[in-house]
């Protein structure tokens, strides 16, 4: 085992500077402990073996990035910081964007976030160093690396990885429409199910979906565990299954309203119960009977 000294060089390929500012905080504020990783910040890319790349790779950056990459000596690792470096995030499908960066360089670790917390950045760099050690010692990269900084915790109000409460979701697609970075997709399986997917590597953690969700089904957790290996890029997804129900009165299949909506519409518990398991058509009849029969 040879000792590895990680030598870090940062490249901004067109980020909004959030990740770069947070990188400075990570590097220069003591509480984030980047120093404990033994990282050395180098002034010349020629001396680097740990490349940190931010941004979605703009058209003008492309040739400069390619040129910079030729100066690196193997082995080296690449850590992409910020959602837009992983999937171009909110900037995807613009005429000026040529990324994501993994089209042009083999990326080892991705850190989603907009911007990621300094601890996520430190975690990404720590994982990068692990991969670098393995590369230097000629070992194969494992499928996953355990979280290195386990004792950090973000405040409860932190907008971290999004999650879904399937019980309350009615697949109304509001979240899909208000999501600015196409991180949410709802698809129908054709046999009575909806699949609700949140792809964390496209998410910009803005909380728009949670804010506009009419039933409170989608919500942000305070988890900032977003530093993942490249092999996990497309599988880092929150999946929810929402099913059609069978109407207990007529037997038709229907999408039930969420409990949250029902309790807003009907204030008495027994009425809510009456409406819970029947389709819209039967609900109309039942409530007409309840009031006028």
């Amino acid at each position: 085992m040879s000792e590895v000294i990680p030598k870090l060089f940062r490249i901004n390929t067109g980020s909004c500077n959030g990740c770069d500012v947070e990188f400075v905080a990570t590097a220069f504020v003591d509480k984030f402990q980047l120093e404990t990783l033994g990282v050395e910040l180098v002034n010349d890319v020629k001396d680097a073996n740990l490349l940190v790349i931010t941004g979605p790779l703009t058209a003008r950056s492309e040739s400069f990035l390619k040129n910079t990459l030729t100066k690196l000596k193997k082995p080296f690792v690449v850590v992409g910081i910020g959602t837009c470096s992983v999937s171009c995030g909110i900037f995807r499908d613009s005429y000026a964007i040529n990324g994501p960066i993994d089209k042009f360089v083999e990326v080892d670790v991705n850190v989603a976030g907009c911007p990621p917390r300094p601890q996520s950045i430190a975690e990404g760099i720590a994982k990068g160093i692990k991969v670098l050690e393995q590369k230097m010692n000629g070992e194969a990269t494992p499928k996953a690396i355990d979280t290195i900084f386990k004792d950090f915790s973000a405040p409860d109000s932190f907008r971290g990885r999004m999650s879904l409460n399937e019980e309350n979701c009615t697949a109304c697609r509001t979240c899909e429409i208000v999501c600015p970075s196409n991180a949410i997709e709802i698809s129908s399986t054709g046999d009575g199910w909806f699949v609700h997917k949140i792809w964390h590597n496209s998410c910009c953690f803005c909380g728009n979906c949670a804010y506009f969700c009419p039933t409170g089904a989608i919500f942000s957790t305070n988890s900032f565990d977003t530093a993942k290996l490249q092999s996990e890029k497309f599988s880092d997804v929150n999946v929810g299954y929402i099913d059609y129900k069978k109407c207990s009165s007529c037997g038709d299949r229907y999408m039930p309203p969420s409990k949250g909506l029902l309790s807003k519409a009907y204030t008495h518990d027994d009425v809510t119960k009456l409406n819970e398991k029947i389709c819209p058509k039967c609900r109309k009849e039942a409530n007409f009977k309840r009031m006028y029969a």
Partner: peptide, 28 residues
């Protein structure tokens, strides 16, 4: 122009391509 560059050139957008990869990983 109003259409995204990749959609114009290839008929599919970058978003379509990436989500296809995501959907391969997700159990439908």
């Amino acid at each position: 122009e109003y259409i995204s560059l990749s959609k114009m050139q290839l008929g599919v957008s970058e978003t379509d391509v990436l989500w296809e990869n995501v959907n391969k990983e997700v159990k439908q």
